[in-house]
Design a protein around this nucleic acid. Structure first.
Lengths: 229, 229
DNA sequence: TTACGATCCGGACCGAGGTCCGTTTAATTT
DNA sequence: AAATTAAACGGACCTCGGTCCGGATCGTAA
């Protein structure tokens, strides 16, 4: 059980949680091994789910994630609009599902990949690697990450974020035992927020390299260690 | 000119910027003394603006900021819907205008209030006071702050946020001359984000006192100083 | 006071997210 | 194979944010 501190209280008793939304990511997040998608999904439902994701991917590739409308996805997939919502809950759920693949790859790299991202390296080094990797990933998928951002109330309860927070808190508890790892993990993750990255790079024109340096510096300060070479 | 580092590049050439939205806050942010509201506004326009703000305030007080609809505000103020949008640009503009009063009070306290919030105290002490004050204010107006949060693209370009960022960067440049004050200010301000506060207090049940302690600890780490007593 | 132009008003209109519910279809049981 | 049931389907429908433009109103100048 990772990060039992107070995040467990963050899981409200049976959160509505749209049908499957991101799917299995939250299983991974709970520590169980990866399952395939939806436990049991009727044949037609599974087929439509795939068609919807494929259609959405095409539309995003063509017009960008910001311009994606639910009706357009339904039409492109030759499916009723209701089906889209039943499957993915809402727009952000669909976008999140689109991000699910890279999400899971990243989670796997953290849990069982090679160091320093995966286990085996000292925690501060893993923290550094974590930020750099997440930075790269977010920059790659910026439009999707931005469009997929949930409303303010749900933002912090989304499964992928909870996983990253838990991972950070785990590393922080090791790296800085005298700190409030729960709160510090929020601070660190906030630096890697997609909207912030977008603002600093696209709107302010900062080169990604500077963000990377800033992350290393932040980790050094928070853990009260020497700046990385 | 405060925080000329790279934020100036964050102001795109003539950002659309709804009619008046927050109003004079951005003047303050540019360092000029406070003006009253809109430079010149036709009598009927000014009257309707006041009626709209009053109506919106009533509705928010009664049903909460999340339930506020633009049509309801228009109806309550006995005004056409178009008038609301012309005056405030969009929903978040109206909510921001509702927050403008406390915004300006806070800005004034920072610029010319008594220490340690205002000038006269050492920068680290002012940083501590800044967070504690902002924390208190945000907790007081949580529903409004949450409902007023702009979309991901605009979030970081909103005038009030730019002001707070600039102020933080100013203090940081003094308190930690060897750091990237621009980036660090984003990190610090992220800790005070309304959505995060809401998540930690309302959803995770953390007492505000713990957030306060967390802020003092964060300031200490970022500035590499000793934790405050 | 009247005339005129700029500004503002209002509400019809549109698009998109999200809901509802009668109908269809896949899995299971007999 | 037929019956049964739970789940999925689809698209009409609703709400609400946001736009548009013909008409009303204000400020000003003669």
């Amino acid at each position: 059980m990772l990060y039992a501190g107070f995040m467990s209280a963050a899981l409200p008793p049976s959160f509505p949680m749209p049908p499957d939304a991101v799917g299995p990511s939250e299983l991974l997040q709970l520590g169980t091994g990866a399952e395939e998608d939806e436990p049991c999904l009727r044949a037609d439902a599974a087929r439509n789910r795939a068609r919807l994701l494929e259609a959405a991917g095409r539309l995003v590739a063509e017009h960008g994630a910001a311009a994606l409308t639910m009706e357009a996805v339904a039409a492109e997939a030759r499916v009723g609009k209701g089906t889209v919502f039943r499957r993915f809950g809402d727009r952000t759920g669909l976008l999140a599902a689109l991000l699910d693949h890279s999400e899971r790859k990243f989670q796997a790299a953290l849990l069982s990949g090679p160091p320093p991202l995966g286990p085996g390296a000292p925690p501060v080094e893993r923290l550094r690697a974590f930020g750099c990797a997440l930075l790269r990933r977010s920059i790659d998928e910026l439009d999707l990450q931005l469009a997929a951002e949930p409303s303010a109330e749900r933002r912090h309860t989304a499964a992928p974020r909870r996983f990253l927070l838990g991972h950070l808190a785990l590393l922080l508890r090791e790296a800085v035992p005298d700190g409030d790892s729960g709160l510090l993990s929020h601070t660190l993750l906030a630096y890697l927020d997609a909207a912030l990255i977008h603002h600093l790079t696209a709107q302010c024109g900062l080169p990604p390299e500077r963000l990377r340096t800033g992350w290393l510096d932040l980790v050094a300060r928070v853990t009260r260690t020497d700046p990385a070479v």
